[in-house]
Design a protein around this nucleic acid. Structure first.
Length: 464
RNA sequence: GGUCCCUUCGUCUAUCGGUUAGGACACAUGGUUUUCAUCCAUGAAAGAGGGGUUCGAUUCCCCUAGGGACCGCCA
């Protein structure tokens, strides 16, 4: 049995969206589960639309989510000669032919098909014509001689057997008039040259697979196994496209979703293993299989991404969480001074409690990052005479205590409340506003202790 | 329009002929927490419809309906 080899083959013509990431993930997981290899192939044969920045984005996205590939990227455009040679061989074997139809001629046929409401399929005009009939001044394209009779069955590892009539597959172009190879040729040649054993890709490639298998057969190559996974749909049930917002990895990383959480979410989107929801990296490799992939498309649900992220925030090692947080802040928010880093690290155990995203933790940490407290105008109104008075009393009280922790503070606060005939909110709210500039945030004792006596006194004194 | 695929709570899904159809997210209610959140408990919520096969169908088959993908000298 040959070692399993899979690949992810995106085209760098736009930002990689999370449907693509999921495809990459499934391929990667499958190969790792089988102890095989996983490769990245950049399909950049569309020179017009391919951009280097997209290639970079793809590479970075995979790296971010933890998918690593063998060697360096396989760049399809550097292999074009191989593809052209195969076309030449096919031509020599009589399994492909030159088609001299003009663009106008083809357009005309398509138009007519549309009018008659019948599906357009190239009429195979030059399939058996002699080249001596070739018109002058037209550069031919090379078409593959597709089977015209009988049926083909694709034994799909996810979808089961799919059968179609061969005559619904047209004589597709493998070499353009300018001599460049088209997708179906390039993809099959590369997959063969790279020794792919399993092709896992989106449902939208099903028809291509029937074409590509014919190329394999024509070249006497071993046909790999195929698995077509259902596409991810938007919440209104359409294929997720690059134009949909919140569809790239960056859209998620910039709001503070962690790679592990997204990986776990994507894994469970359209795949399941019993009732298990949480899979760490090792488990996802251990349990992944093709049988667990569902047949119907699944919709992206942002609230599940949030809750998955929340789960990871609360359950991963705090040192790791801290690293993720700092990277996040410095990439998307601001550089965190070393002094604040220390405080954040010490306070992470409660800063993370309210958070669904790294952004939430960042916001909760604001009072530790900024020494100067900004109080909103609407909140200033809450700092009335009564509030100032109780805060002053509070300052006096804490000046008397030697240490500064919850045990020391609780009696002070309780006494102040009682003496001044108010509830907890009466002291808690102004205190919170003065110390953090916000009505919401971590628990008041957490805030007090994390800031420390000196800083608390300093901030409160500034108010009066 | 043609070809192919799909159909269990709002969402992701479990069930591989016999279950009070389970879990998770979201939602609602209550409790804990001297705010918010967390946490805990409880609740509401599904087999698209119609035929078969079978002692018995969510599960197997057919039809209908709905949804989706593809139909480029893009990948």
């Amino acid at each position: 049995m040959k070692t399993v080899a899979t690949r992810f083959a995106p085209s760098p013509t736009g930002p990689l969206h999370i449907g693509g990431v999921r495809t990459a993930l499934f391929n990667w997981l499958y190969s790792k589960n089988k102890g095989g290899k996983f490769y990245l192939r950049i399909e950049d044969t569309d020179k017009e639309r391919s951009k280097d920045e997209f290639k970079t984005q793809i590479v970075n996205s995979l790296k971010w989510i933890g998918i690593n590939y063998e060697d360096s990227e396989y760049i399809q455009s550097t292999k074009i000669n191989d593809h052209i040679n195969v076309a030449g061989e096919l031509l020599k074997k009589g399994l492909a032919y030159k088609c001299y139809c003009s663009n106008d001629e083809i357009e005309e046929q398509k138009k007519r098909a549309k009018q008659k409401k019948i599906p357009y399929i190239y009429n195979r005009k030059w399939r058996d014509k002699s080249e001596t009939d070739a018109p002058k001044g037209i550069e031919p394209v090379i078409r593959f001689k597709s089977k015209v009779e009988g049926n083909s069955i694709l034994k799909d590892l996810v979808q089961g057997n799919i059968e179609i009539e061969n005559n619904t597959i047209e004589d597709f172009i493998i070499l353009r008039a300018d001599g460049s190879p088209t997708y179906n040729l390039s993809a099959s040649v590369d997959d063969h040259l790279m020794g792919m054993t399993h092709i896992i890709r989106g449902d939208d490639h099903k028809i291509n697979t029937f074409k590509q298998i014919q190329i394999y057969d024509a070249m006497n190559w071993k046909v790999p196994s195929f698995a077509h996974i259902p596409l991810i749909h938007t919440i209104d049930g359409k294929k997720l496209s690059k134009r949909d917002n919140a569809s790239t990895l960056d859209d998620y990383s910039k709001i503070g979703i962690m790679p592990n959480a997204l990986r776990n979410y994507l894994l469970r989107l359209g795949w399941s293993y019993k009732d298990k929801e949480i899979f760490d990296l090792k488990e996802s490799i251990k349990y992944f299989n093709l049988e667990g992939i569902g047949k119907s498309p699944s919709k992206l649900d942002i609230s599940r991404i949030y809750s998955m992220n929340e789960h990871y925030i609360k359950n991963i090692d705090e040192n790791d969480l801290f690293d993720f947080l700092i990277t996040y802040c410095e990439t998307f928010q601001e550089k965190i001074p070393d002094s604040a880093k220390k405080k954040i690290k010490n306070s992470l155990h409660f800063l993370k409690n309210k958070a669904k995203t790294l952004e939430d933790i960042y916001k909760n940490s604001m009072f530790l990052i900024n020494d100067k407290v900004q109080i909103k105008n609407e909140d200033k109104k809450l700092l009335d005479e009564k509030a100032i008075k109780i805060i002053n009393l509070f300052i006096d009280e804490i000046s008397k205590i030697p240490s500064f922790n919850r045990k020391d503070l609780e009696p002070i606060i309780n006494n102040l409340i009682k003496k001044n005939n108010m509830n907890f909110k009466g002291l808690g709210q102004p205190l919170r506003i003065c110390l953090t500039g916000s009505k919401f945030g971590p628990g008041i004792y957490d805030i007090l202790c994390s800031l420390g006596k000196d800083e608390v006194t300093k901030r409160l004194t500034q108010i009066r």
